[in-house]
């Protein structure tokens, strides 16, 4: 766990890894979305609008997975004072917020032709909107605390506590009556109610977006570390 504690060692791995993740993710996304748009079948009920699934679901997974990673990093920062953990949590916040917003917008664009409405205050939609607000609050809190020269401990506690929203989002469709449909894919049981011809482009798209997300997080971590180096040098001068 402490292998990456040393920023120099981290950068040695992160520098070559960034373009690899970025390009492989980007190419996979383009291929998966091309299949999703043109080669995959329409749904028996939703018709063509099922194609929104290939961007909506990966965005939702990354929005939720992003906060999970942010909470783990916050936990490591609080317990082990891991020097890179705070940098990682901050680096995840902006892409996590971006994909949560993409999830909400594409979901609205799917909801209109399918349900007949852009937005309803059901448990799934509302808890996902709360996730976006949590990301925005985290970013604002982080900015404010860094301006005061704090260690970011309050931000880390907020990141950890905010993680309770993740299981709420996940189980909202089972626990409450929601307009949003139940989950189609269960990784725990290894089952899916999505036909294979639609599942493969979806999983490929999700993998591609995840790789690209990783590249963005590495870029933001490298930027933060470089900025830290500059600030430390300026203070010594």
């Amino acid at each position: 766990m402490h292998i990456f504690a040393n920023p120099a060692r981290f950068l040695k791995i992160a520098r070559p890894l960034t373009p690899w993740l970025g390009w492989s993710g980007g190419l996979l996304i383009v291929a998966a979305l091309a299949v999703g748009l043109f080669a995959s079948p329409a749904d028996y009920l939703q018709g063509e609008s099922v194609r929104i699934l290939y961007v909506h679901v990966p965005a939702a997974w990354l929005g939720m997975g992003g906060w999970t990673g942010l909470a783990i990093a916050s936990f490591m920062q609080l317990v082990w004072r891991h020097p890179l953990a705070a940098v990682a949590a901050r680096a995840i916040a902006v892409p996590g917020a971006a994909f949560t917003a993409i999830c909400l917008i594409t979901g609205a664009l799917w909801g209109k032709p399918t349900w007949g409405t852009y937005w309803q205050w059901d448990a799934r939609l509302t808890s996902m909107l709360i996730l976006l607000f949590l990301y925005i609050a985290f970013i604002a809190l982080d900015d404010a605390e860094r301006e005061r020269g704090g260690e970011g401990r309050i931000t880390a506690i907020f990141g950890l506590v905010g993680a309770v929203n993740i299981p709420i989002i996940h189980y909202s469709v089972e626990y409450w009556n929601t307009l949003h449909q139940g989950q189609s894919i269960s990784f725990l049981r290894g089952s899916s109610s999505i036909d294979a011809s639609m599942l493969w482009p979806l999983l490929a798209s999700a993998l591609g977006f995840t790789l690209l997300f990783g590249a963005v997080v590495l870029m933001r971590m490298r930027a933060a570390l470089a900025r830290q180096k500059v600030e430390a040098r300026l203070r010594r001068m």
Binding site: P41, L53, T114, W115, Q181, S193, I194, D195, S197
Partner: peptide, 18 residues
Amino acid sequence: LAKHDENYMPPQLDVKTG
């Protein structure tokens, strides 16, 4: 409002059994 279920499949597949 129409509520969709969690099944996604091409039109030629049977709705109930998949």
